[in-house]
Computed example of a mutant assay.
Amino acid sequence: MPSIELRTEIKADIQLVFDLSRSIDLHKISTEHTKETAIAGITSGLIGLNESVTWRARHFGIYQTLISRITEFQSPVLFVDEMVSGVFSSFRHEHHFHNSDGVTIMTDVFNYRAPLGVLGVLADRLFLKKYMTELLEERNRIVKVFAESGRGKELLAGKTMNVSNFKRQ
């Protein structure tokens, strides 16, 4: 089973980083380029234990629907989302957080199985792992920008954000 592990250092309070990481609204901002939107379940605000969200997004030119559920939750150090249904055969995304000298270390461990058996394994080697890594890196970049700039507190307080200010340059 392929695995992606990313470590991001963020100069912000661990609780703020934890909450931004489970914010449906911030996720929509970080995936704006895929036109990702939450269409069922928790569609805005913070997602929590045993809650699910249905995402609709365009990947590789095709609109796809994915349902994920929070299966583990220990604020502010861990939450896990797992695919309930979607294009992958399976995925489990662990979000770990710890504080080190005033810096929050956010570690993502994303384990997944591509669909389509041998064809999926080939697709993973050719482009899927790189694509998924870049999606996660962009999400983490947005979490970092919002947490370190103070905009994260505004977002969590329900203030409207201009997505175009945070696009990759």
Rank of each mutant, 00 (worst) to 15 (best):
S85V: 04
H59I: 14
R56F: 01
T54K: 15
V84I: 13
V53E: 05
H98V: 00
E94R: 11
E72C: 01
T54C: 12
R69S: 05
F97T: 02
V87D: 14
S89F: 01
T107L: 07
G102Y: 00
M83I: 03
V84M: 06
F110W: 10
H59Q: 11
F60E: 11
E51H: 06
R56M: 11
Y112W: 04
I105D: 00
H96N: 08
S89K: 12
L46T: 10
W55N: 12
T65L: 07
H95T: 02
G86Q: 10
M106P: 00
F110M: 08
G48D: 11
V77W: 09
G102C: 07
T71A: 06
F73E: 02
S89D: 12
H95W: 03
H95S: 00
F73G: 06
W55R: 13
S85H: 07
G48Q: 13
T71N: 09
N111S: 14
L46D: 07
I47Q: 15
F91H: 10
S100T: 04
I70C: 14
D101C: 01
S85W: 05
D108E: 13
F110H: 11
H59R: 08
H96R: 11
S85N: 10
S85C: 03
T65W: 00
L46F: 08
H59D: 05
S89W: 01
